[in-house]
Design a binder for these strands. Structure first.
Lengths: 129, 129
DNA sequence: CGGAATCCCCGTGGATACTG
DNA sequence: CAGTATCCACGGGGATTCCG
């Protein structure tokens, strides 16, 4: 990497350039936009959910992945974990303010996929030929 | 019916039951919302790009991943590949109509990450303690 | 220039079993 | 109920090399 590139990098970081490989939001973005991240956040849009409820709601996810992604989302300040000191223990996950603000753009994106499902699948078929 | 249920219903109507593990759009969604998919589409929003231009623009992507994801995007009908029969060959990628319609929601999402970068990083730091 | 092919490593992610 | 721990397989993804 040349000095010019470094300068370029610095400027882009300051500007919040999403394309820069050094952009620190990338790992977070990866988590959120990942296979399960989107679905978990989307599931929580409708309100708080318990662990097992999420597990049931989101088809095909394993406990490990759910727990792992939830931890990451909590760590990013998008989700809060609430523990009721009852027996048996009862843990509830819900979106933070930040998480709620993310929900808009995210569900828009999911909505797009829903609306354009037919065209996407059609394109897939053509290619498969 | 609670407010949550109403929201739930709306969301599922919009998304075409995105939570179903059998939903055929999932693999496509994974591709597009994946680490590189989002950035590639976002990069093409500003207009057609050549292979090397994309490679330069998107920091940290390998040729393999770029080529691979581009193929997937073409296969999904989001991107068109144009070959100029010159020497040396010149290949240009651009968004289809479908791709353009995706660009909106997608850049909104990227924009969200840009705007909330500070808060995300702050939350990360707190957790790291 | 724009890839395709190969090699190889490491992380993701699934299944299962165990803890508090 | 809500996880954690362990094992294990697969594929994502990087570096390199070669081709049209």
């Amino acid at each position: 990497m040349t000095v010019g590139d470094q300068l370029n990098t610095s400027l882009r970081l300051l500007a919040g350039d999403t394309f820069d490989s050094e952009c620190p939001t990338r790992p977070i973005m990866d988590k959120v936009t990942s296979r399960w991240g989107t679905l978990i956040v989307a599931a929580l849009v409708t309100g708080p959910h318990r662990f097992s409820a999420l597990h049931r709601r989101i088809g095909g996810i394993s406990q490990k992945m759910l727990s792992q992604h939830l931890k990451a989302l909590v760590g990013s300040g998008l989700v809060v974990r609430t523990v009721e000191p009852t027996v048996p223990p009862q843990v509830t996950y819900s979106l933070t303010e930040l998480g709620m603000s993310l929900a808009g753009p995210l569900t828009d994106l999911l909505g797009w996929f829903g609306r354009n499902r037919a065209e996407l699948l059609a394109a897939q078929q053509q290619t498969a030929d």
